[in-house]
Design a protein around this nucleic acid. Structure first.
Length: 703
RNA sequence: GCCACCGUAGCUCAGGGGUAGAGCACACCCUUGGUAAGGGUGAGGUCACGGGUUCAAAUCCCGUUGGUGGCUCCA
């Protein structure tokens, strides 16, 4: 006699064992039609799951057209579609051995082992999709069959799939007492697959799908194990949702910072210079410099001190900090002095031995700095400090070098040399909360100014069951409370993630979602008890005794490279006026207006505006188009009429028409105002208040 | 790092065992045009680099280098 409690806390009693489908039907016919699965006491199950005892049950439904699906609904859909794809591939290639096929964020994949000599290619996708369409059209039920573990293993051994046997053995080792199969249709007659489930009620619920790409992978992710073929696909409840997804992917491609970076000449990565090493070209350098100027002004306001430190330091420094040899794999190889190297060579020292001697300190050398903190710490330690000096805030756009695996590198998002907008705050225990708030204030200003509104904050706390953390638990409690409070002060959604703290202290990370929905970790604020101890830092307190300062590491942008990559994609290359490499372009209608155009350019230059003139012999239509493709925020089109009246005809990016003429001085003043206020008082608002604004920043490829 | 795919003009790409093609960009000429491509002419490539096979290699093979995607979320 199970009593079922629904999410609204209402209850229903049933006379005997009841399935999810029956519960849904008891509530309403519409719900029964929409139901595709259930959650029983928090566990996602098939709609046909039989419930025999009292339970909390939530019905998982497929979304109405236009409604966005729940995570559970997508999970069921995509997991089921992975089966359909596997069945389709096995129909076409019967010798394929299946390995593992889970849903993932954007769809699903299936790993499989192809017989020696056989390959899949994207040419096979239409055939696979045609088979899948047939299976979906047949609307066959997903039918679960369970066997006790031993019997299940016997069956698998008879089938002879070593991968599935391994999967089952792992499941049993993890505590499973039975093994389950899902048949698409009738067990024993139709195709089936060892699978934990759950699944949709039937294949017909899969509204729209697409085989996306091929990749290779390893069994268990182990490079020494079998190489597998991974087929990626995606699925949605209806064709419109699939189309929207594909359109988003297209949009992402158009916004890719590597594509726009080349088009607009923002940066270059050169084979001869090296992988993952960014060359900032003149236009990109302007964007970066403007960002740095922006943040430097805020740092000055907040009482930071600017410092400069070199790109290398002695290994001993990093032994003290703990970066070497602990993080050796993610660093460039140390630099050994020529004399020392020559001596070691004479002694016949092997590379392995050299490596050991560098690690144990019997040979010294230099390291390209993987972090800025040791240098800043030595600045702090270079003179005694009173509690009255604190907090000491040392800031530097510091370039660091890290050895990323070649396969991980990508554009400016993952690189081997990057510049952090770094700072280290040395303060007393009591000052930590106030300093954290200051850091978060900075982050808020940056994100607001750049309209990066969709931000998520992660507060990394210690795992209470672990002993890997340094520092006094009472200090941790205070620091964690301060982080939580600071995160709250930001007014953005935040999650607390136990176990995600660094071993030396809790941290606050900022994750932004770009225009196409991808998440990127940018800035970070971290409390550190470890390094002050390792470097034996101290200040003299009011009691005339030495005390240990607490350090805060913070980099609101994270790295200039990654941040600019995200910004390029966020704005689709259409930077706001204050950041744009070229802010205004002056276009004379014909060479008869060249003199007036040059006069306008001089006025813009005098006001500190980055402006150029296009004096080419193309027609004005062509030059307007060129300027639009170059994402120039503002165009002055000037002809004889303007010259006579002392005006410029203004066209702003994102608004595809002539806005009208304004006196040159007024236009230049308004542009200067927009630049100075970093967009809070725009040219449009000042000169063309009747024009609907807001179209400027986010319109990719149009102006 | 490992695996798959890829590298042809500045860019986007076609072609493919008998030494090279388009569009855009570039240069020059004509056009003097009021808001997203006016017309013509021309220049531009050791087909990523190195080696091999071959009468002959950009094309086939091997190596290197660089790029792109991927490298478990218990069946």
């Amino acid at each position: 006699m199970p009593t079922i409690t629904l999410p609204d806390r209402s209850t229903r009693r049933f006379d005997g064992p009841v399935t999810g489908a029956e519960i849904a039907a008891s509530i309403g016919a519409g719900l029964a039609r929409a139901a595709i699965g259930i959650r029983v006491n928090g566990v996602l199950c098939d709609l046909g799951e039989v419930i025999e005892t009292d339970a909390d049950v939530a019905i998982v439904t497929q979304p109405r057209p236009g409604q966005s699906p729940s995570d559970d609904a997508l999970y069921l859909l995509r997991h089921s579609c992975a089966h359909v794809m596997a069945e389709a591939i096995q129909r076409l290639h019967p010798d394929v051995q299946l390995v593992y096929g889970p849903p993932v964020e954007q769809g699903f994949y299936y790993d499989m082992r192809l017989p020696e000599g056989q390959t899949l290619s994207s040419d096979d996708f239409p055939k696979i999709e045609a088979e899948m369409a047939r299976i979906v059209a047949e609307d066959r039920p997903f039918t679960r069959v369970s066997l006790p573990a031993a019997a299940g293993l016997d069956r698998l051994r008879a089938d002879g799939s070593r991968y599935k046997i391994d999967n089952a053995e792992r499941a049993i080792a993890a505590g499973s007492t039975e093994l389950s199969w899902y048949a698409t249709g009738t067990p024993g007659k139709d195709w089936d697959d060892l699978c934990r489930g759950p699944h949709l009620p039937s294949t017909g619920r899969i509204g729209a799908f697409r085989v996306m790409s091929l990749a290779s992978s390893y069994w268990h992710g182990d490079a020494d194990s079998d190489r597998l073929t991974r087929v990626y696909g995606t699925a949605f409840f209806d064709a419109a949702a699939l189309d929207a997804h594909l359109e988003r992917l297209e949009e992402a491609k158009r916004r890719d910072h590597r594509v726009i970076g080349r088009q607009l000449g923002l940066f270059h990565i050169d084979e001869m210079v090296g992988q993952g090493l960014i060359l900032w070209t003149p236009a990109g350098a302007i964007v970066r410099q403007e960002l740095q100027n922006f943040i430097a002004a805020e740092l000055q306001r907040q009482g930071y001190s600017q410092v400069f430190t070199p790109h290398i330091g002695k290994l001993e420094l990093y032994r003290t900090s703990g970066h070497f040899p602990y993080y050796r794999e993610s660093q460039f190889t140390p630099i050994v002095e020529a004399d020392a190297l020559a001596m070691l060579a004479r002694e016949g020292c092997s590379c392995g031995e050299l490596s050991n001697r560098l690690a144990d300190g019997t040979v010294d050398g230099f390291l390209l700095k993987p972090m800025n903190c040791p240098h800043h710490i030595r600045i702090f330690a270079s003179r005694p400090h009173s509690y009255r000096d604190l907090p000491v805030r040392l800031a530097e756009f510091g370039t660091v070098y890290r050895w990323e695996q070649s396969g991980e590198l990508g554009g400016m998002l993952r690189v081997r040399g990057f510049t952090q907008d770094d700072a280290h705050l040395f303060c007393t225990e009591e000052q930590v909360p106030r300093e954290l708030e200051g850091c978060l204030e900075l982050v808020r200003i940056i994100l607001d100014t750049l309209h990066l509104t969709d931000i998520r904050v992660r507060v990394g706390l210690r795992d209470p069951d672990s002993s890997k953390y340094v520092g006094d638990p009472a200090e941790w409690d205070k620091a964690e409370a301060a982080c939580r409070q600071a995160a709250e002060s930001l007014g953005a959604p935040f999650t607390e993630e136990p176990g995600e703290a660094a071993f030396y202290g809790p941290k606050i990370d900022f994750v932004v979602r770009d225009a196409v929905g991808r998440e990127w970790q940018l800035g970070t604020v971290q409390v550190d008890y470890n390094l002050p101890r390792r470097f034996d830092l101290s200040y003299i307190g009011p009691d005339n005794q030495p005390h240990r300062p607490v350090m805060i590491h913070r980099a609101p942008f994270g790295s200039m490279e990654r941040f600019c990559a995200v910004l390029i994609e966020h704005f689709a290359g259409a930077f706001p006026l204050w950041l744009a490499p070229e802010q205004v372009r002056v276009l004379p209608i014909s060479d008869r207006s060249e003199a007036w155009a040059k006069h306008c350019l001089a006025a813009l230059a005098a006001a500190g505006v980055r402006a150029t003139g296009d004096f080419s012999s193309d027609r004005i239509q062509a030059r307007v188009r060129d300027a639009a493709e170059a994402r120039i925020p503002c165009l002055f089109v000037v002809g004889p009429r303007d010259e006579e009246a002392g005006t410029v005809s203004i066209r702003a990016r994102g608004i595809q028409r002539d806005l009208g003429a304004r006196p040159l001085e007024e236009a230049v003043r308004a542009i200067g105002e927009e630049i100075r206020t970093r967009g809070s008082r725009t040219l449009l608002a000042t000169c063309f208040s009747e024009v609907a604004v807001g179209a400027g920043a986010a319109a990719p490829g149009k102006a």
